[in-house]
Computed example of a mutant assay.
Amino acid sequence: MRQGRPTRRLGGMLAAALLTLSSGVVAQPGADPDQEERFDCRSLAERGPPDTALGWLERSLWANHCYEFQARAVRIGGDGVRSLALSHDVVEGVEREVARFLDGPAVVFERRGRIGRLSWAEGDAPAPASPAGIAEHLEGLYRLQLSGEERLANRNTIRLDIEPLDGMRYGHRFWLDTATGLPLKQILLDEQGRVVETFQITELRQPQLHQGEIGVDRRRARPQDPWHPAWLPAGFIPQPVETRSARHDDDIGHRVYSDGLATLSLFVEPVEGPDQLIPGMHRLGVSHAAVRHRELGGRTRQVVVMGELPPGVLLRVADSVEWQVGDEGGMP
């Protein structure tokens, strides 16, 4: 990879992708609080312990939204070991999540938003809130299995193994707090079953169920892009998230696709100026980035596909991007 500005640009794209998604929470300004759909977190207290692996997964997804807490954690990946301070709270129906790295470069991620939806609105078709939609969508893509109980961070957990049914995505191991459903440990496994990343909470400080409601993002119509990927792995669907970012120029198109667990970001921009990336495969932490320079819309454009997915999958998506016939203008 070239050094200097191209490297920073790739890092900026990764940062934009990370800020776009957070367990189904996305920053969606401008929603009318009197009109939005809401989820009452207090309903979780009325539910008994799940009796299936899928039930535990859905419980964990809702818990990520509804529990307020502070925690310390450690992340182990290809770029070494880093410790973090985490916090999550809800104010007037809007979530706020902060992750602060405690060693190495000083990095802070802060995200605010409502509960996201699984897909863009398509006519009268349902666009379910992401936790319920994800649990239903995973059928046929992964095999879920409960694998016993362990004690972590001085709390009882149940282990949930999630194995992909093809070689197009990575596997997961979750250790879920039996009292709250919050994930206390997560392991990401590549297509050969090797550990790619471990994330573990070492101290969870008095998690409290939010005694109120959280807003669900409004239904959003799909934007009309002049380009689209002609191929995606089975189960990957466009995500209804706001992708405009001050971290990159307006002529960079950015869309997000997910199967509910795995996510990829697709960027398309004109090739111009000195800070372009070398075509091929790049690695940044536990993520990969496939870079192609393609003739699209009457000019050369840089296509970047990023995600925690097998490199061959990212390259195939990048090679499949097509420009709509008749759309020869610039980026919207």
Results as ranks from 00 to 15, higher is better:
residue 1 M to G: 15
residue 6 P to F: 07
residue 16 A to S: 10
residue 16 A to G: 06
residue 17 A to H: 11
residue 26 V to E: 13
residue 30 G to Q: 07
residue 34 D to A: 14
residue 41 C to A: 10
residue 42 R to L: 12
residue 44 L to G: 06
residue 44 L to S: 03
residue 46 E to C: 07
residue 50 P to T: 15
residue 57 L to T: 02
residue 61 L to G: 02
residue 61 L to N: 01
residue 66 C to H: 10
residue 67 Y to W: 15
residue 67 Y to T: 09
residue 68 E to R: 14
residue 72 R to C: 04
residue 79 D to I: 03
residue 83 S to T: 15
residue 87 S to I: 09
residue 88 H to R: 14
residue 88 H to N: 14
residue 95 E to V: 10
residue 109 F to Y: 14
residue 109 F to D: 13
residue 114 R to E: 06
residue 116 G to L: 00
residue 117 R to E: 01
residue 118 L to V: 01
residue 118 L to N: 01
residue 122 E to W: 06
residue 125 A to K: 15
residue 126 P to Q: 13
residue 131 P to S: 09
residue 139 E to S: 09
residue 140 G to D: 06
residue 141 L to P: 07
residue 143 R to G: 03
residue 143 R to A: 13
residue 146 L to Y: 11
residue 147 S to F: 05
residue 147 S to G: 06
residue 148 G to S: 08
residue 149 E to H: 11
residue 150 E to G: 04
residue 152 L to H: 13
residue 154 N to W: 07
residue 158 I to Q: 08
residue 160 L to P: 07
residue 162 I to P: 06
residue 162 I to Y: 09
residue 166 D to K: 04
residue 167 G to N: 12
residue 167 G to I: 08
residue 180 T to Y: 07
residue 180 T to N: 03
residue 181 G to Y: 04
residue 182 L to V: 04
residue 185 K to A: 15
residue 189 L to Q: 12
residue 190 D to M: 03
residue 192 Q to N: 13
residue 199 F to S: 10
residue 200 Q to Y: 08
residue 202 T to W: 10
residue 202 T to Y: 09
residue 204 L to Q: 12
residue 207 P to M: 12
residue 209 L to Q: 06
residue 209 L to T: 07
residue 209 L to A: 07
residue 211 Q to E: 12
residue 227 W to S: 00
residue 229 P to V: 04
residue 229 P to F: 01
residue 233 P to H: 03
residue 239 Q to G: 03
residue 239 Q to F: 00
residue 240 P to A: 08
residue 242 E to V: 02
residue 249 D to K: 09
residue 250 D to E: 12
residue 253 G to D: 05
residue 254 H to I: 12
residue 255 R to Y: 00
residue 256 V to I: 14
residue 257 Y to M: 00
residue 260 G to F: 02
residue 260 G to P: 03
residue 263 T to I: 09
residue 264 L to Q: 00
residue 265 S to K: 02
residue 269 E to W: 01
residue 273 G to Q: 12
residue 274 P to Y: 09
residue 274 P to N: 14
residue 279 P to K: 11
residue 283 R to H: 02
residue 284 L to Y: 06
residue 284 L to E: 10
residue 285 G to L: 04
residue 289 A to I: 08
residue 290 A to W: 09
residue 295 E to T: 01
residue 301 R to P: 02
residue 304 V to Q: 01
residue 305 V to Q: 08
residue 312 G to P: 03
residue 313 V to G: 02
residue 314 L to M: 10
residue 318 A to T: 09
residue 323 W to K: 00
residue 323 W to R: 01
residue 324 Q to H: 08
